[in-house]
Write a protein that binds this DNA or RNA. Structure first.
Lengths: 132, 132
DNA sequence: TGTGTGTACTATACCGAATGATACAGTATT
DNA sequence: AATACTGTATCATTCGGTATAGTACACACA
């Protein structure tokens, strides 16, 4: 379900965040589904509970999951606050800009880049939405 | 020319790397151009020379610039080694995957994402290339 | 012989990531 | 009431990367 790469440059708590989001997007987790408890997941991944807790707190801050003492953590319906969307939208622009510059330095052409992006979208977007 | 954001989460030496690459892509720096010396740039940015040196070493490792003792650092002609291209290509795929998943969680539609990417490409790609 | 260049090395300070352990607070079940 | 589960909070500690500081070396050029 969730796998951790010890040698990755991205910290463990971010790997958890990213993989939970990926599972949701790709249909492995649906709205209302219960995700493993802090202690469960820390036991499965052989990492510290505090690290998992940090991931869940950030996921809740982003409106991806909802947590409740004694009950557990559950997948939310997508409902990001406007402020949060602006914040993460700006970050997304910066990352895309960096990615484009990197692609140029790898020798990609503009047309090649566009088709490459299209391929990656088809591979990672998950289920179709209204205008898919 | 190059500006450092002290409060940014990205380390200074990476900011330098990214901005040098951006300058090259956007035409501010061309093949053969001399870039500021380690001590010059560290003086301009009010940072430690070792930090600039680290940036230049990574830029040289990636084949973006060439350095020579006593002469300085100069912009290279793009000639990345095949191994380097594979390494960075894989990294690019991972980043794009993460970016796509993030876009979904921000409520973008597939079509909306594609047009957004197109806009960013037009804004950041720089001069036209063969099939632009 | 100078001056400017990249490079190398050591030492230090700071911060985030991750661990370990303990305790607290709310929920559900028995 | 008791118990077991949940998320949360706090403290201490270790570890690695970032950045600074200072010094020294090797090469190029005038």
């Amino acid at each position: 379900m969730i796998q951790i790469n010890e040698r990755s440059m991205t910290p463990i708590y971010e790997q958890i965040i990213n993989q939970v989001k990926e599972l949701i997007v790709k249909g492995g987790l649906r709205e209302g589904d219960k995700i493993p408890s802090v202690r469960e997941l820390s036991g499965m991944l052989l990492i510290n509970p505090n690290t998992v807790a940090k991931s869940y707190q950030e996921l809740e801050r982003q409106g991806v999951i909802a947590t409740a003492r004694g009950k557990g953590a559950f997948v939310c319906k997508p409902a990001a606050s406007p402020g949060m969307e602006r914040e993460r939208g700006e970050q997304l622009r910066e990352e895309m800009k960096r990615l484009i510059i990197e692609a140029r330095h790898l020798g990609m052409t503009k047309a090649g880049f566009k088709t490459w992006v299209t391929d990656e979208v088809e591979r990672n977007w998950g289920e179709q939405d209204a205008d898919g």
